[in-house]
């Protein structure tokens, strides 16, 4: 019973983390059909900026609650800048090329940004433990949970609900759905698809950076965190179906719970259970759980 509860809570927390990280990737893929490897770099930049901001803020002894806002703001700002630069300078040059070529372009951007981190912050690692301390712990039965983890779950729920409502009930969201469904028809009806691409990419980048900021207190912010995240996020969106909001949510839940179960029951398989789940899903549903099969073009 306790074990089951532990798996459930760990799984939910991990799923929340995965969802926050993967939702931006999924959005960008859904709208632009770009598998954005640079997402890992957005995550890393978000984490570094948030950790730096947190360090500067908490050193001054300002009120605790503001620290969360400062971290989130730092991440969103860096996501905005990086996303805008990348989309406007590099990606626009390769629109219309093979999807695989665009993957490689974002891979190149990822490599460049990885080293930019070394140049800016140097090789030493940062930590932003303060929010974790502030949030404290609480108990469910005999289980100790950190308040920060609960915050992560709430943030994930907020993003999911916000995403659903935003896509269904705002003008921008509905137009975006039209672009996702059929780019050319949307353009024919007067939707400025190019601008939607820019906005989407920037939002995706901000979400990636926000994911980094959200995780910064829980990890040691160090070189190479983006490398790991990118394959994790791939796995989540591949399980759920790329470009689908529901897919990212369900994918994150499946992967999160499977990993938590593995950690508690069979630690030897912990590292690859995620990819095993991904491979298994792709075997039966090549395009993920939540996507329609594409008609083949003759």
């Amino acid at each position: 019973m306790l074990l089951g509860l532990a798996i459930l809570t760990d799984g939910l927390v991990y799923a929340a983390y995965l969802f926050i990280v993967a939702v931006g990737l999924s959005l960008i893929f859904g709208v632009m059909k770009i598998l954005n490897v640079a997402h890992g770099a957005f995550y890393a930049f978000g984490a570094y900026c948030a950790a730096t901001a947190a360090g500067m803020y908490f050193d001054r002894g300002l009120p605790d609650a503001g620290g969360f806002l400062v971290m989130a703001f730092a991440a969103i700002a860096v996501g905005l800048v990086l996303g805008l630069i990348l989309e406007r300078t590099i990606l626009r040059l390769v629109y219309g090329k093979d999807e695989v070529i665009i993957v490689l372009v974002t891979y190149a951007a990822f490599l460049i940004l990885e080293d930019a981190i070394i140049l800016i912050w140097g090789p030493s690692s940062l930590s932003a433990y303060q929010p974790l301390v502030i949030s404290g712990n609480f108990m469910i039965g005999q289980l100790v949970l950190s308040g920060y983890d609960l915050g992560l779950v709430l943030l994930a729920i907020l993003l999911a609900v916000g995403g659903f409502l935003g896509l269904r009930h705002t003008r921008y969201g509905r137009l975006l759905t039209a672009v996702i469904f059929d780019r050319e028809t949307a353009a024919a009806f007067g939707v400025n698809v190019t601008r939607f691409f820019t906005i989407t990419f920037v939002i995706g980048a901000m979400l990636g950076a926000l994911g980094g900021a959200a995780m910064a207190p829980k990890i040691s912010v160090t070189l190479g965190i983006g490398v790991e995240v990118i394959v994790l996020a791939f796995a989540v969106v591949a399980v759920g179906g790329m470009g689908s909001m529901e897919g990212a949510l369900v994918g994150a839940l499946i992967v999160g719970l499977c990993r938590a179960a593995a950690v508690h029951l069979l630690p030897q398989v912990e590292l690859f259970v995620i990819y095993a789940v991904m491979a298994l899903v792709l075997v039966f549903r090549p395009h993920g759980l939540f996507t329609r099969a594409q008609p083949r073009k003759i």
Partner: peptide
């Protein structure tokens, strides 16, 4: 038998997943 049915990004992702499974096994 599995990979040959996939194209484009799905091929890239599935081959990535398979190599990462091996990585996980080796590390553990």
């Amino acid at each position: 038998f599995l990979l040959a049915r996939y194209r484009e990004i799905f091929f890239a992702m599935l081959s990535l997943a398979l190599s990462m499974i091996l990585y996980g096994v080796l590390v553990k």
